[in-house]
Design a binder for these strands. Sequence first.
DNA 1: GAGGTTTGCCTAAAGGTATTAGGTAAATGT
DNA 2: ACATTTACCTAATACCTTTAGGCAAACCTC
Lengths: 189, 189
Amino acid sequence: MVRVGLTPERLTRAGAELADEVGFDQVTVSALARRFDVKVASLYSHLKNSGDLRTRIALFALEELADRVADAVAGRAGKDALAAFAEAYRDYAREHPGRYAAARLRLDPETAAAGAGVRHAQMTRAILRGYDLTEPDQTHAVRMLGSVFHGYVSLELAGGFDHSAPDPQESWAWIVDSLDALLRHRATP
Amino acid sequence: MVRVGLTPERLTRAGAELADEVGFDQVTVSALARRFDVKVASLYSHLKNSGDLRTRIALFALEELADRVADAVAGRAGKDALAAFAEAYRDYAREHPGRYAAARLRLDPETAAAGAGVRHAQMTRAILRGYDLTEPDQTHAVRMLGSVFHGYVSLELAGGFDHSAPDPQESWAWIVDSLDALLRHRATP
DNA sequence: GAGGTTTGCCTAAAGGTATTAGGTAAATGT
DNA sequence: ACATTTACCTAATACCTTTAGGCAAACCTC
């Protein structure tokens, strides 16, 4: 009986990798046990249950995505920051589709509040500082940016743009451009 | 052995209702069998498998949503049509969250081509006729509208706007307004 | 380094879902 | 009225989840 050295952290990380390989909804306690060559029941010393695993992966992904975005927007402002945010966001989703799906998992409010969701909101608001928006416009804009980014990435990952021209990259650039123009136009003098 | 009168259509409809009640991912062949007070295996005479059931619900929801949207935009143009499209779309998702989730199921290309997905694309392009966009701008705009609508509704259903002012309805109106301005601004003279 | 304690992984078992094979009785057609 | 079709059933297999209880490896503590 060799001890593999399981920990919630290792399981979470492996779960995230598994999600990218087979899809977040295919992430199962059994599959994870197989990956560590360990019996299924053994994982229950480290995880409360299968929901706990998914939540941990979600929080992990949120954190990782927030890090990436924070890195991308650091030292930028205005349209530059907006474009960097957008690119980092989309790139993460394309590199890690399973983790991205995990990041969209609905969390109960306390869990969400404790996680990196707050950082995401703060970063979006930081971007908007370059556009002189007052409330409630700023909140509307936060919601709009979140919608466009999530919506686009989600459609792209679902294969919605697969068999049609032009290249999704071009549409993405066009959209970012449009959002910039829109936000400048909405600025309160 | 009383015959209940199962058909693929009745099962699909009941599955759609079940989805709205418990969530699309909780729609299971077993749950459906319980709902008809019938043994699970009996459903396999009417459905190929569980994926078949989900696909049928997805196609049903796509059709229903397309009908609603078509109804809403009929006889309207320009911003009026855009707003009507947006409202019909969001209302459907809020009234039928399970069906809406079903409509986002990834279908294989042939199935998708045979279903109402095509109508959705056509209607979006019809809306854009009021804005004088030439290609490739029109495609970019189609993708953007799809992203915003899906993204917003998806975030709203996930509870993303639950504990924050202002009212989601206001943000929605603001966004539709912004999109209209944006599209007018993008018009090619 | 020997002792006891903690704990990581195991076996066993129960319950749920998906799916297939093969049977019986109700409905349908002639 | 009889033959055929078909709607639903029982039975069986397989996988995933979760809990309970056991054994041995790892870790103190002296």
